[in-house]
Nucleic acid binder design. Structure first.
Lengths: 353, 353
DNA sequence: ATCCTTTCTTGAATCGATTCAATAAAAAGC
DNA sequence: GCTTTTTATTGAATCGATTCAAGAAAGGAT
């Protein structure tokens, strides 16, 4: 019994039954006579056979019972990025309930990603399209498996996706601050990595920001316009959703003659970095500066002070996404879910001028 | 070209070449004449064939290029628990570098877990043995794939595992606090879920705590003995590594006549919950009470005040674990890695009595 | 005793590729 | 011109199971 992989056929031969019967012993035990079943099982144990090999079974059955979650990011992204983490937590919960496994698929560069997507053993994909979403979609489409895109933005309606009411949500965020009395705003946007981060004009923003980011910017502007604040009056800085670029943006913003009293951050991650920068520089949040985020990640709740944010219905998103894959029933049309304002301690009326 | 899955054989027939050649076109293009290769590729494109199906390839190759990470916890554990997260981040980094995928395997109950482990499409397993480790190991062993256990404690030497110097580390933690002048301690241990949490005598602790937890307790006691503090003088409470049980333990501890001035927590998670409880109750950390954790998760660094803790060499652990799986070279003997003391703001001399 | 059911069991086909010994064709060497 | 080497291609075996039509055996009914 050294090694020499025992396979089903060996068991069958040793037990003197056909391979078909041997197979039934394991996959449909009720169909085979008890006496035979026990004999086969006994032989299997003697030979050190531990049930059908998954690879063989897979080839026939064609079902893996796992869904892939893909992103154009390093693998660690799934465990580090707050939004990804929060989303994955929900996805995991749904998968747990349905007994489905999760395979993480990712790669920083195109080429590797293509390979990874093609060779992932999964029944379908959930695509985290934070950046370069179309490429991810194109790659996945070739695999001819069910998939659903998340955070894709206003893309092609032919792409199965679960969208978000980004414009309405951003508008609500801006309105919340404006209602509190703020009139001096700054927007911290999420730009593509590689694109130089930094200040941009509204025109540049409309042109260079993608999907989600652009929608959020439009939402902010739209609401602020109602309060007489024009686009040109709101500095907008692209960041790379990391600390360094956020810090750099804030350096610039707060070096200005009349720095903003309210910061509209396009992600909680950015907002939290911003709050930390403000704390380091001695600005009090919310007394000196109000900060509002976007996403509704758990960290926003535990930060001090709590971060006011627009929460995504992550549980709902996860639920629909997983269901879409498992039932191969992508939503007929791209549905947009609403985000909801959660007011915490990071927003308050502006200081007296 | 509706559906009717095209397979390699179809391409071969359509192109008038043998199946072997068709296979080579995709997997070893350099071996087939350019003219033929292009023709076959052309036909493949026409027929809507996107390269070899992974399942068929898998059956032959036998290699999945993914490693499974398993735990007896719900799937969400990987994204929620700070230690798991920190570890996974490192594992992900190593996998990224080697182009390996990650499959998450988990289940709360035994039965499902057995099924999940048996049907996971992976080349090997990393086992997160926080609890019920032996069962996990037993289950995995049957799969006859390389595996390595993490956080298994002093188990069977025949089990490939990467251990931790828990006793020495815990001793160092306790010594750190004793050196600062503390003499009134309390231990917050990690008990098995299901076991009633709560106060326990040292004898009970030795008996009921498992592996890691027991070693850490032994380490604490050992160091404290050098300072004249006996086991019986150190209340030890089992928690379930969740907020509720930590809060309950602290309620009891601080209701005592002479509450502890130093808390030895067996995980950063517990320590952070404890710090939050203390803050809510108006105890200042570290002025009234010092807290030291264990694990060295990232959250410990960003908490306010920073949490003093014993850091695990997670990167090293991840690196060795992944290597062990990929090379099928489990360490000859169970190696134990050292943890290192990281002093932050949560520990200070005790208040004057 | 005959025929009809039921209940197991069999053997072969199938899933979708890879691999390798054998062969055919072309190029090189003398 | 004939042999040797090189290069491309073929065909069949293989990976490890599942599935299903068909056959055999046992039990029941008449």
């Amino acid at each position: 019994m050294i090694k020499g992989h025992v396979k089903l056929a060996d068991i069958a031969k040793a037990a003197g039954v056909s391979q078909g019967t041997a197979s039934n012993v394991f996959s449909r035990p009720e169909v085979v006579r008890e006496e035979v079943r026990e004999r086969v099982l006994g032989i299997a144990k003697d030979l050190g056979y531990n049930g059908p090999d998954i690879k063989g079974r897979l080839l026939r059955a064609g079902r893996v019972n796992a869904i892939g979650v893909a992103a154009i990011e390093p693998l660690a992204y799934f465990f580090e990025d707050p939004w990804a983490r929060a989303l994955m937590t929900q996805v995991a919960a749904v998968c747990d309930a349905t007994g489905t496994g999760i395979a993480l698929v990712s790669a920083q560069n195109q080429q590797k990603l293509a390979w990874n997507i093609n060779s992932a053993l999964v029944d379908g994909f959930i695509l985290l399209c934070v950046e370069g979403g179309e490429q991810l979609v194109a790659l996945t489409r070739r695999r001819q498996l069910p998939f659903i895109a998340l955070a894709l933005g206003d893309g092609d309606a032919a792409i199965p996706a679960i969208g978000l009411g980004n414009i309405a949500g951003a508008a609500q965020a801006a309105r919340h601050l404006a209602d509190l009395g703020h009139r001096r705003f700054a927007i911290l946007a999420i730009g593509l990595t590689g694109d130089g981060a930094g200040a941009m004009t509204p025109e540049q923003a409309v042109r260079s920001l993608k999907f989600t980011s652009r929608d959020r910017a439009l939402g902010y502007w739209q609401a602020l316009a109602d309060f007489g604040v024009g686009r040109a009056d709101v500095p907008i800085h692209a960041t790379q959703n990391d600390r360094q670029s956020v810090d750099a943006a804030l350096e610039t913003l707060f070096a200005a003659a009349r720095p903003p009293t309210a910061i509209l951050a396009m992600s909680d991650r950015i907002a939290l970095f911003a709050m930390q920068w403000l704390a380091r520089r001695g600005y009090a949040v919310p007394d000196d500066v109000s900060v509002i985020g976007f996403d509704g990640v758990p960290e926003a709740a535990t930060a001090v002070p709590g971060l006011t944010t627009m929460a995504q219905p992550l549980a709902e998103i996860a639920c629909r996404a997983v269901a879409a894959i498992l039932d191969d029933a992508a939503p007929a049309q791209q549905e947009a879910l609403d985000v909801t304002l959660i007011v915490r301690g990071s927003t308050a009326p502006p200081p007296p001028d």
